[in-house]
């Protein structure tokens, strides 16, 4: 089995596990947990994956980080009662 296939299966299992645990309530938490899964997989697989695959994984991580920054900004604004 290819490393990329193992990564895809691991990420699918993680996502379904988070969906089971979080349910349909908190979308922000769910997406952040997916981001955490991505970061774990990226770190653990870093020695085994080729640079081209690492770049592809990094794109997903970067999209997740942008979303995370958005969530944090939204929380800060809501604490400051600006929204």
């Amino acid at each position: 089995m290819l490393i990329s296939q193992k990564l895809a299966i691991s990420m699918a299992i993680w996502t379904l596990l988070m969906l089971t645990l979080i349910g349909g309530e908190n979308v922000e938490l769910f997406v952040i947990m997916i981001l955490i899964g991505l970061l774990i997989i990226r770190e653990l697989s870093s020695i085994y994956i080729r640079p081209s695959l690492a770049v592809r994984l990094d794109v997903f991580v970067q999209i997740g980080i942008v979303f995370f920054i958005g969530v944090v900004m939204r929380r800060i604004l809501s604490i400051l009662e600006l929204i």
Binding site: L2, S4, Q5, L7, A8, A12, L53, R56, L57
Partner: peptide
């Protein structure tokens, strides 16, 4: 899962 599978397994 769909997008990840399409873009990662390449």
């Amino acid at each position: 899962i769909g997008i990840f599978t399409i873009f990662i397994v390449h």
